[in-house]
Amino acid sequence: MTKGKVISKTVYKDDKPVKNRKWIFSRKQLCIPYGLFLFMFVIFPLLLIVFYAFTDETGKISFYNFIDFFTNPTSITNLFMSIGLAGITTVCCLLIGYPVAYILSKMKQRVAGVIVMLFVLPMWINFVLRAMAMKELLTLIGMFGKNNFLNTVIGMVYDYLPFMIMPLYTTLIKRDRSLEEAAADLGSNRRQVFTKVIFPLSLPGVLSGINMVFLPTMSCYVVSDTFGNGKVTIIGKLIEEQFGVAANWNYGSALALIMLVIMFVTMLLTGGFKPQENMRGANL
């Protein structure tokens, strides 16, 4: 105990700020630009699309755009064409991409890195140019114009294969090899090791690859225009027409909204919204 006379006392208040400033600059303020950006370029356009979709040319609320779409056999055909094309492209990409990614994951990392690079390299060349080149190739071997749907699939697969290989490769390369040893130790032959351990554990990569291929191929009309010889019309093309030549923004917006719903459902089905630990890195 200190002995002595008390000269002065200072009381500290811990729970209340000493100065009561009205405005303090904090980390929260840093979010303002992003919030503005989000509103201006994501939320506002979306609201605009919803507004246009549910109104007619005069600005009155109407469901005519949707009724028109679902009663018109051509647009329904186009919708199924889109989904079918995207589905087949995705399956083809998966069938080609999985073995490639698997083989690459078994190779020495340095060699595999170079080969992965070679697979990704075409992505650096302009997309349209690549499509054109592939079209010329098909013309050269006499396939162009014979089966427009098949050609479109070929074009799509050619363009989107890297997007399937990359998430698969990153998932497979990270896998724990001791699990394969454990499976073999417990009596699995090579095939069973694959079906019971390697493949189930690579599912996050598979789903991520499906998302990366399926969603864009539904709307990527540049490829279907180039390879389809004018016979393959997908929903993306319809939207482009409505906003371009037809200048019917209301119908176009309704189409965009329908596509948004399809994509949303796909994401929901493939678990794209689930924030999973082991999905990290698989999502490019």
Binding site: S178, L179, V197
Partner: peptide, 8 residues
């Protein structure tokens, strides 16, 4: 196994 190697 050393690190168990359980199937996650």
């Amino acid at each position: 196994f050393q690190r168990y190697a359980l199937f996650p």
